[in-house]
Design a protein around this nucleic acid. Sequence first.
DNA 1: GTTTATGCAAAATATTTGCACCAGA
DNA 2: TCTGGTGCAAATATTTTGCATAAAC
Lengths: 153, 153
Amino acid sequence: MKITFNCGVIVKRAKKKAFSDFIAQKGLKSTRQRDIILDFFLSSAQHMSLEELYLKLRAKHPGIGYATVYRTLKLFAESGIAREIQFGDGQTRYEQVSEGEHHDHLVCTRCGAIAEFENETIEKLQDEVAAAYGFLIETHKLELYGLCAKCRK
Amino acid sequence: MKITFNCGVIVKRAKKKAFSDFIAQKGLKSTRQRDIILDFFLSSAQHMSLEELYLKLRAKHPGIGYATVYRTLKLFAESGIAREIQFGDGQTRYEQVSEGEHHDHLVCTRCGAIAEFENETIEKLQDEVAAAYGFLIETHKLELYGLCAKCRK
DNA sequence: GTTTATGCAAAATATTTGCACCAGA
DNA sequence: TCTGGTGCAAATATTTTGCATAAAC
């Protein structure tokens, strides 16, 4: 049994630290926009599309451009604090990545609700499959599509 | 141990039958283009993108339009003989669906090679996860990304 | 003859880039 | 000051649609 204890504030701080380290190490600059976007991203719902993020951000910070949000999210992904995901609806979404943790998704095809889950046994089996094919796994993606409990009624 | 015995010609014939039944049942028309595209699709490599399919098809049958291929592949998916897949490279790909069979993918991030696999235990575990969340699964997608045996060397 | 399909071109989406100006180090 | 960042608009890339003509039924 795995016990995870996440204090929101601490996790957020750790990610900010991780990103600023990344920025420094790459010789990039810390800017007002990046701070705003990072703060907003870390405080937002998971799995927002770039579009959604931009619009919500824009409501509070009118001066920010789409390209900046776009490039900044790419940076987040590159730095390892975020990940791009595609649910096949033609929109790239972003989710936060927590150190050493990986989760997969249940996507409701009716209401769009997204639940996250983790299953170590499945991960192990994936490794076995990969080994059988001589593959070296870097990442994986597992998504279950269907009706959520609410929409089944 | 599951033994699968597929005779290419028979499978192909079965899919053509399935598609023509679908066409008939929907009150649509059987056309020269649909026949050509279907035949080509069933004889081609798996996981081709729409673009690839169109270009290769076009080489032999210059008169065929992109929109026709696009709409026809959608029809294949709707009829159940094909499935759309996204590997996150911004291109929609299509693969053949064989009755009662489901497979997942190993995608090489270096050379783009795609291997297919099937693992009943993983599927069972997925059902358990879904049940725990009250989800009713319709489909799922499992992709393992990494280096294939060749590219590891 | 009707109805649906096709092919083209245009529209709609989404993502990415060029560039003049701005800001952080 | 120098280097990288920002915002805008334009360029790409891809998917989708409108419509006149052609082909099935």
